[in-house]
Structure formats: structure tokens, C-alpha cells
Design a protein around this nucleic acid. Structure first.
Length: 455
RNA sequence: GGCCCCAUCGUCUAGUGGCCUAGGACGUCAGGCUUUCAUCCUGAAGAUCGCGGGUUCGAAUCCCGCUGGGGUCACCA
């Protein structure tokens, strides 16, 4: 039997959630490891929350991370008749029933249950309702799962072991909505079965609804897939990773200049560790050593600081050529290939994200608009330095350095203070790439111009 | 609140009964290198393994209880 995994994102946000990227990565890697298939299914059954363009964005992001599906993505909204067919089959077999209750009745029911501090469950009021035959009547209905009473439902989770929940905890869930769309619970079971998904690897938040799915599988007479509930990524305060407290869109990380491989490498470390305790490893290596059983059930805090460190490691490990094109592409032509090539030796070990190239190198293409320290008191110095430099024919970093060192020595200032003033005069900033080399790249003319501006 | 899941340095984790006076990584701090920053190197602090009971000659590791955190209780996924 070939392993088939899937992710089922719903197009209700701006983009793929980083937590979804995490589960996608595990699903993808597990499929690869077993020479199986990784599938994407768009769960677009919530028409109210549907966001235009989200589906395309999700697919694009997945591609950007190299987690492309092995088959054409499936869209649930195009499979309505299938879900309806199975829902009706369930009604026939007594595992589900039509429900005509109004929103008002349901709310009243919930309110009274809450007042008595009872669990809020549907009261099976419509259990024996017939389907409305007369179309003119136009009563809207839903189909509910007929959950048996006091039965315990168990399933095995690859990561957590056996999980048992009593049906007294399970509501008669709506499986087909009045708009004809299925709810997640019906759709996921029908699709996973029809698409021959062997391993359902999804986030921990689904554990409590899994028994509903188990009931559905049983009612339909289908064999259960293997379940593995991976941990939910957390905010620093340990709540579920959310956009209020953290950047959550996968593309945000790309836009900040993190490399897909670094992000994935970092994500692999959430709830899992390399058998040899390595921190940095390739995606291929992860695929080869991954075992779902080794994923821990704790909810890890997503730590941007460590991701940033790791991204720096990846950047430093890149060849100059690859880094050059990565920077060029990231900044979309803002910097010329030539300039990037020249500056790479200066910034290769300094930048931790591709975006940081701006912080170090923007001054090459743009004169400082402001200066991070007050330069007035250095006027004379800057002027004499300017004069010495103007005499220099051979505009090379080491020569430039020699000339400036002489000025520094005569100034009586400490090297650190003297060069800091110069650094700020030329780059505008206290933090910059090495000064002599930067001046060489900038060119004599531009350097003289910038020094003149100050003095 | 009911139910379910989880519990080792601030964070990610190693650890599956003796090798643990608990190892690594990030971060932090100190020092070295240094014309800034970063890289690199050296070192340090940091976890009575959430707490309390058992089981055992022996427990971070097994069992129970408690506490804490999280998730979930929709015609959302």
C-alpha cells in the first residue's frame, strides 16, 4: 500500500499559516520517505469566511518552500454532490438525520443548558424527522450525525498512543449544512477515504473531534487511516500561535529574507530532534531519518531568535555566487549584480537575513539622509582627511586605510573615535561594512562628495 | 466548567531504571580577535528533571494523586 498524506488548508486567511506549513512539511517529508504521495486539498466549504485569492496564495507559498503536491489540488466546493450522497446514505442507515431546528431554537437550547451548567448538546429533537418532500415548503434543513449514547470511542495516535473519548462528550454534529456544503467532519472523512489517504497527520487541535470522524468511518463501513496529531506551535506565552502575538503567515518569513530551507530546518526541530543531535541538516537528511513516533507531544514555542541564528548559518554556508543571486532576487533589482558581487565579501558573515542587506548596503546607492552621530565637532578633521585623500591616486582599500591612519595619528584622537566619525560621515550609520573596502567600492569621487557635504 | 493532550535550563531539546554530580543548541554574561557591527575562538552563569506519594537495591525515566500549561466543546476549519 502506498503511503498517501495530505494537508487540508482552508482559504480563509491571507496565506498559509506557519503552523500549517509545519504540518505540511511533516506530511510531505513522510510521503517522500515512503515513496508515497503528498496531496493538497483545499477545504473551502465555509463560504462565509472564504477569502478571495487565498487558495492561489497558499499554493504559491507551498511551491516556494518546495512542498509541491504530487497531484493536482482538490477543491471540496467542487464535490458537493459526493458529500450529499454520503450524508443521505448515513440518514438511510440511521447514522444521521434531518434537522429543521431554527437558529433561535438552538440558541435557546444552548442558553438554557448553560444556565444549568450542563454541557451544550443538541437534544436530538429532530431525530425522527422525515425529509421534506414538498419543495414549495422550502424549509431549510441540515443533516446531523446521530451519535450513539454512552459508547466509548477509541483510536490510536502514532504520537500519543491510544486516545479514548466517551460519546457522551460528542454532540450530534451537523455534517451537511443548510447551504448544501458539508462541514469539515463529513468532508474530511469522505475525502480522506476516497483519496486513499493512509496517514492523517494534522495538528493537535483536531484530537477532540477525531472521535466524530471515527464514528463516521464506522458508520460508512470504512477502515480507519493512521492518525498522528502533531503539536501546535505556540506563542511565547504558550498559547496557540496567533497573528495577534506573532507573525504567522509563511510568506512573511520569506519577505523578511529567511530562506525556505532554513525555515524548514528550524520547523523540523519543533517537537523533534535529529538522532545525532545535529541542529543543521538538509531537507533530504530530514526525510531519511524522520520517524513520526519520534515527534514529541509537547507544544513548542516558536522562537524567532533561534530561527534568525539558523538563517545566518545557512547564509554563511552559501557560495558567493548563490548568495549574490539570492540577494539580487530578494531585492528585485534594487542593487546591481556588480555592486552585490563587490559587497558580498564585506557582508557575507554579517547578514542574518537577506533583508538585512539593506541595513548594511543601502548607503552604496543612496547618500545618507541623516547621521547617527553629531558630526559638527569633527568638521576640521573631516576636512583634513578629505584633503589627504584627494591626493591619493591609487584608490584601493589598503591605501585608503594608510592615508586615513596618518590623519588619525595626527588628530590625537583614538582610532575608534576617529573612524567612527568617518564611518558615519560616509554611511550615515554607526554600523556598516568595513570602511576602507566600502570607500573603495563607493569610488573616490563619491567619497569626496560625501565628505564635502559634511564639511 | 466537562472532556482530551502535555510537563527536563528563559527557549528548542537529549535522555526510555544504574554510564546523569542531567548532555547539546539558541539566547544571556565575561574574555580574546577587532577601525563599527558581525563572524570566529575561550570561558561562565543557567534545570533540587512542576509538586507529593508510591514501585525498586536504585527513577528524569514505571504507577497514582495534585498542580500548572495547552487544546476543544459552532450550520468555522
Amino acid at each position: 500500500m502506498t503511503v498517501r498524506t495530505r494537508i487540508a488548508p482552508s482559504p480563509t486567511g491571507e496565506d498559509l499559516h506557519i503552523g500549517n506549513l509545519y504540518t505540511a512539511f511533516i506530511n510531505w517529508a513522510f510521503a517522500k520517505k515512503n515513496n508515497g504521495q503528498f496531496i493538497v486539498r483545499i477545504e473551502d466549504t465555509d463560504r462565509a469566511r472564504l477569502v478571495e485569492g487565498a487558495e492561489e496564495k497558499i499554493l504559491t507559498t507551498l511551491d516556494a518552500f518546495g512542498l509541491s503536491p504530487d497531484e493536482k489540488p482538490v477543491r471540496q466546493s467542487e464535490r458537493l454532490s459526493t458529500y450529499k450522497e454520503y450524508a443521505e446514505k448515513l440518514v438511510e442507515s440511521g447514522h444521521a438525520y434531518y434537522c429543521y431546528c431554527t437558529k433561535e431554537r438552538l440558541e435557546a437550547l444552548r442558553d438554557s443548558q448553560q444556565k444549568e451548567s450542563k454541557p451544550t448538546r443538541y437534544d436530538k429533537h429532530c431525530l425522527n424527522s422525515e425529509k421534506v418532500k414538498n419543495e414549495n415548503e422550502k424549509r431549510s434543513y441540515v443533516i446531523r450525525l446521530n451519535v450513539p449514547e454512552n459508547k466509548s470511542v477509541s483510536f490510536n495516535d502514532l504520537i500519543r498512543g491510544k486516545i479514548t473519548i466517551s460519546t457522551s462528550e460528542i454532540d450530534d454534529q451537523v455534517i451537511l449544512k443548510s447551504d448544501g456544503y458539508p462541514t469539515y467532519h463529513l468532508a474530511v472523512v469522505v475525502d480522506d477515504y476516497l483519496m486513499k489517504i493512509t496517514h492523517v497527520i494534522r495538528a493537535e487541535e483536531w484530537i477532540s473531534s477525531t472521535p466524530k470522524h471515527v464514528l463516521l468511518y464506522e458508520a460508512l463501513g470504512w477502515e480507519l487511516p493512521i492518525f498522528a496529531h502533531v503539536p501546535i506551535l505556540r506563542n511565547p506565552d504558550r498559547s496557540k500561535l496567533s497573528k495577534r502575538k506573532n507573525p504567522v503567515w509563511a510568506s512573511w518569513y520569506l519577505e523578511e529574507g529567511y530562506l525556505p530551507e532554513a525555515i524548514l530546518n528550524y520547523l523540523a526541530l519543533m517537537g523533534w530532534s535529529h538522532p545525532e543531535e545535529k541542529e543543521i541538516f538538509s531537507i533530504d537528511e530530514f526525510v531519511s531519518v524522520l520517524d513520526l513516533k519520534d515527534i514529541a507531544a509537547n507544544g513548542p514555542v516558536f522562537d524567532l531568535t533561534k530561527l534568525t541564528w539558523m538563517n545566518g548559518e545557512y547564509l554563511r554556508a552559501m557560495s558567493a555566487e548563490n548568495l549574490q543571486s539570492a540577494i539580487f532576487n530578494f531585492h528585485k533589482g534594487k542593487y546591481s549584480q556588480e555592486l552585490i558581487q563587490k559587497t558580498i565579501p564585506l557582508i557575507h558573515e554579517r547578514i542574518k537575513t537577506l533583508k538585512e542587506y539593506d541595513d548594511y548596503c543601502q548607503f552604496f546607492i543612496e547618500s545618507p539622509k541623516k547621521y547617527e552621530i553629531e558630526l559638527n565637532k569633527y568638521d576640521e578633521l573631516l576636512k583634513s582627511n578629505s584633503e589627504s585623500l584627494s591626493l591619493l591616486e591609487d584608490w584601493q582599500a589598503d591605501k585608503i586605510g594608510e592615508v586615513m591612519q596618518q590623519v588619525a595619528d595626527q588628530s590625537g584622537l583614538k582610532n575608534s573615535e576617529f573612524f567612527m566619525a568617518l564611518r558615519v560621515a560616509i554611511t550615515g550609520r554607526k554600523i556598516s561594512p568595513p570602511l576602507n573596502e566600502s570607500m573603495e567600492i563607493l569610488g573616490k569621487e563619491e567619497v569626496m562628495a560625501r565628505l564635502k557635504t559634511i564639511a
